[in-house]
Design a protein around this nucleic acid. Structure first.
Lengths: 200, 200
DNA sequence: CCTACCGATCGGTAGG
DNA sequence: CCTACCGATCGGTAGG
């Protein structure tokens, strides 16, 4: 009956909704996430569920944030101890490959799926997704620039070109894992990254 | 009143439906393609429209075929005259980049969008999409093998690795064009392909 | 190809 | 958090 318990319960319910939403959205898309289905699978009413978010769009935005938190924890969060420069860049990419290889989320990378789903639309969800993508590219760019300034990558390295190619390798990894269930894909991703970081 | 005219009209109507379906599906996904919306935009009834296909799944399968025809015409169909081996491989990839650059379909590559949308599901649509992807990779593989046998690529070239990287470059091109409207992306794709086909 | 209709489900609200 | 409900839309069918 204490207010503290109620608040904790509310937050816990909200988290339960978000966790399940993220699982559904990763596998079937952010639009395939319907209030009715979500409520049934969580054993609650649509009204009770919507009370936490107001509208479906607000729920979708919260799911985007939740996905970002998971990615942050599983990829950059795992390599904080890696030495600055090229080792850190390599470690981040390896954590990214491992994240996709371990299939942390059903249906692979939530952001790949959601970005492809929303890139032709407009609105707050699309903008939030574009923002997250920009944020991680910015992170990558920082590591690349440090590697250059440490002399670990050539001084004339085209930073954005390198990032373009890293993104391609990750998109291909997701593609071959999800569509082809190709278990050799992680090794191909690692080989391609290695070529990118050493041959240059 | 002649039966010939009726058959021609029927086929023309069917083609009109498919063309518009492909445009919608490219921009908003194969599931976002709804019978009601399609009928309204084409100025016909849902029943009249469904009469051509029977079910939505059959329509979706026909749209996949239509997309394959467009791709076939716009990419491999444009480079039939290119000399066998590495020149042909390069020409196919250039036609592919150009196809995405010219935005032949609204919303970019239909197959990238549809594949990402359906890769977590099961059924005939998913299977058809996987089949098309496999078919084009097979085509690419043939050109790579020829280039190797002609001595235009190193004898120890890892064919599937090369194709993995080409797919990544194309997926990244679609990503940067659609999400970021990044007009430098085609040049990045060409540079990456060039490195792939010469440095090795 | 049409009108007229079906049950199911959508996102969301009123009121408690 | 619930029940009970709203109008709109979904894929699809009957009958012509």
């Amino acid at each position: 009956m204490s207010p503290r318990r109620s608040v904790a319960d509310t937050l816990e319910t909200r988290q339960r909704i978000l966790d399940h939403s993220l699982a559904i959205a990763s596998a079937e898309g952010l639009e395939g996430l319907t209030i009715g289905r979500l409520a049934t699978e969580l054993g609650m009413s649509k009204a009770g569920l919507l009370g936490h978010f107001g509208t479906k769009e607000t729920l979708q935005l919260a799911v985007v944030d939740q996905a970002a938190e998971v990615f942050q924890r599983e990829v950059p969060g795992r390599v904080k101890q890696a030495p600055s420069g090229l080792p850190h860049l390599r470690a981040v990419c390896e954590a990214w490959v491992s994240y996709l290889e371990r299939e942390v989320l059903p249906g692979g990378c939530f952001f790949t799926a959601a970005t492809t789903e929303f890139d032709g639309r407009s609105g707050r969800v699309r903008d939030a997704l574009a923002g997250m993508n920009a944020l991680w590219r910015r992170d990558l760019r920082i590591h690349v620039r440090r590697a250059i300034s440490f002399g670990e990558l050539p001084a004339d390295t085209d930073v954005d070109q390198l990032i373009y190619e890293v993104v391609g390798i990750m998109l291909a990894l997701n593609h071959f894992l999800q569509l082809e269930h190709d278990s050799t894909a992680p090794a191909r991703a690692r080989l391609a990254l290695d070529r990118l970081f050493t041959v240059r």
